[in-house]
Write a protein that binds this DNA or RNA. Structure first.
Lengths: 194, 194
DNA sequence: TCTACAATACGAGACGTTGCGTCTTGCTGA
DNA sequence: TCAGCAAGACGCAACGTCTCGTATTGTAGA
């Protein structure tokens, strides 16, 4: 045992340069027109160094996403105590994010990447918030008795994200009341008049 | 005026052969690995004949979709008089359709195609039923007093389609109760016990 | 009416370009 | 000594343009 390894060790500088270049070119060109050669050139790296560590373009993009080089942050729903306005604010924030053409291209490219690579799909799913912050906010609402206790919160988050993604895909323009309507749908009707 | 044209006229046989070949190769290889040269060869047609009439691969796929060479039929929700079970049956049918790996590839390729071509996105949207049969069934439910009259039916259809698309993208396995939960969400709670 | 001609679409495929993924070379550092 | 590195050559596939020769169709002159 004790497999000693000798020889040079993997260069972290190259790795980071490659991820940075991938993120930059991805945002600029989109997933389809992303080329390994361009990434290598942009990163100042030999092609082999990319092929040595990542089997496919998809894997490279997936790692970019994991490491947070793509989609930094992401919307996090607040907890003001009012689940309805918090969800609405979240949807508004997401739509506002997608209004910037740059972000629009980014999202659609991510969808394209997801559509031919399962890993990317799953990570996109996590990162978009459906299984983390958004669900957490909904769970808090259940605990606070703000929504009916049998609400399938994981599915609610997914439905909201799905609606947003579909809007982006179909290029349907969003009207300003859409966030309210979406939240009404998933919460089972408009806010009761007090 | 009266700009007369002369010379040979466009060959309908070639046009149909190209669309057929595109549909066949699209379903077989997916959008990404679809090549114009392969389409030309499959259709027994010169490449120039394709480039003469379609500016891009996306446009070709879009026309395939318009003409119904792709996604024949599509699920049509029944009207049994019970909106809840009709919607559920529709969701089940759609998920069952996507369980076949062939259809799965087709759908994901359509999503990929939509993500870099707006026309395809819009047509996919129409064809998936969100703006036609599904909405019509929901409108009938409103007229019959089955659901609250202020339900934003167009958005409900979109939300359901979005949820299905997202499931396909994320490769999340579907459990058998998912259709029920999705319908519960958009209809504002589980079916009341009679 | 018939015939030449011009205009256009067609199948076929050559062409230069781009990006692929592999391989080689010479260098650097553990 | 051996592994990772940058650089880039290599053969391959598909790109989109272009040019052949042929077929089809309208226009115009006999």
């Amino acid at each position: 045992m004790s497999e000693q390894r000798r020889g040079a060790v993997r260069s972290e500088a190259s790795r980071v340069a490659i991820l940075n270049a991938t993120a930059a070119l991805f945002a600029e060109k989109g997933y389809e027109h992303l080329s390994i050669e361009a990434i290598a050139a942009e990163a100042g790296v030999g092609k082999q160094t990319i092929y040595r560590w990542w089997p496919t373009k998809s894997a490279l993009v997936a790692e970019c996403m994991i490491e947070g080089f793509l989609m930094p942050g992401g919307a996090i729903p607040l907890n003001s105590g009012d689940i309805r306005s918090d969800l609405e604010a979240w949807v508004v924030a997401v739509f506002r994010f997608t209004e910037d053409p740059d972000n629009d291209v980014l999202i659609r490219s991510l969808v394209a990447a997801a559509s031919d690579n399962g890993d990317i799909g799953r990570r996109l799913h996590d990162r978009l918030g459906a299984s983390s912050e958004l669900t957490e906010r909904l769970a808090a609402a259940v605990r606070a008795g703000e929504v009916r206790p049998d609400l399938p919160i994981a599915d609610v988050g997914e439905v909201l994200v799905g609606a947003v993604v579909l809007r982006i895909l179909t290029r349907e323009p969003t009207d300003e009341k859409l966030p309210t309507r979406l939240v009404d749908i998933v919460l089972g009707g408009p806010r009761p008049v007090a």
